[in-house]
Write a protein that binds this DNA or RNA. Structure first.
Lengths: 150, 150
DNA sequence: CTCGCTTTGTTGAGAGTTCAAGTAAGCTGG
DNA sequence: CCAGCTTACTTGAACTCTCAACAAAGCGAG
């Protein structure tokens, strides 16, 4: 009944798992070491910095980050404690919280970005050819749900 | 100074990040839900099941799983509590612990495997063409350190 | 042989994630 | 209008992971 993986598929699967774990761990370690934040927090700062007025609704932020609301809520509490973000109630819909990037948060992002980009290059871009990168993007896009409406 | 990512690279990077996170989270959730174990534990059971006599030295297991020794030690404690593995001291080198898969652990692996494989197919293999899979394997292999001796 | 370095593994504290439960506000059909 | 469903978000507990510190055993040069 079960469609087991053959040898070829096993190797593909294990290579994918090892590679994606390796890249994520390298990035997380670099950010934690050099900027004192996990990659999840960095991603929050990036998203907020790109939003109009550097503010987003919590649920919208969660959706864009593919994060659970719970995770985001816990994380935002930490960002607030560090002074990197703050929350404000929304007058129009009182269930909503606005997540707002502070100047300190933007500064932390600015400080962290160069090291992070360098780590991304070392972990990914410097190891692949332009052709491989183009193919990788196609493949990853195919894996994402929006590109794959069943 | 910083080699920033251009638009193309940004999209590649974010697609890779989103795709690899998605796949890992889907698998972790499926295993946790259907078999009550995180993927890291499943991987330990798999490695042990493939080893001669279903036993490995802790450090060897850590290396093969790309895991820290600390993580493995904590995880092994949990597996022991569940009766899925046990540890035995090594007479030849008394620093070494053997990690041994129990029959209960092997049974747990056997029970979990079909659902896990199905999840892997849904998350990865069913979404890509054979050509894409071949390319993905090449790319992931290029990202791994052993294939990239600087 | 022994001092110092390396290897192997464990432990505890701190931090992040998950899951389930809970609160509060908006929405909707009768 | 109001009972019940849905949406937005928070909270606490349990669990996993990381990091640093530690202990103990092997190893190796002097």
């Amino acid at each position: 009944m079960t469609r087991w993986l053959d040898d070829e598929e096993q190797r593909t699967w294990r290579a994918f798992l090892a590679a994606s774990q390796l890249v994520q761990e390298e990035l997380d370690r670099q950010l934690q070491r050099d900027s004192g934040m996990p990659h999840a927090y960095y991603a929050m700062l990036v998203k907020l910095s790109e939003a109009p007025d550097r503010m987003m609704r919590m649920s919208e932020l969660a959706t864009e980050l593919n994060s659970s609301q719970s995770r985001l809520s816990h994380a935002m509490k930490r960002l607030e404690e560090r002074g990197w973000a703050r929350r404000e109630p929304c007058a129009a819909d009182r269930r909503v919280s606005w997540a707002i990037l502070t100047d300190e948060g933007f500064a932390a992002l600015t400080a962290a970005a160069p090291g992070h980009v360098e780590a991304v290059r070392q972990a990914l871009f410097d190891r692949l050819t332009p052709t491989q990168l183009r193919r990788l993007r196609e493949i990853c896009t195919a894996l994402l749900p929006t590109s794959n409406p069943s």
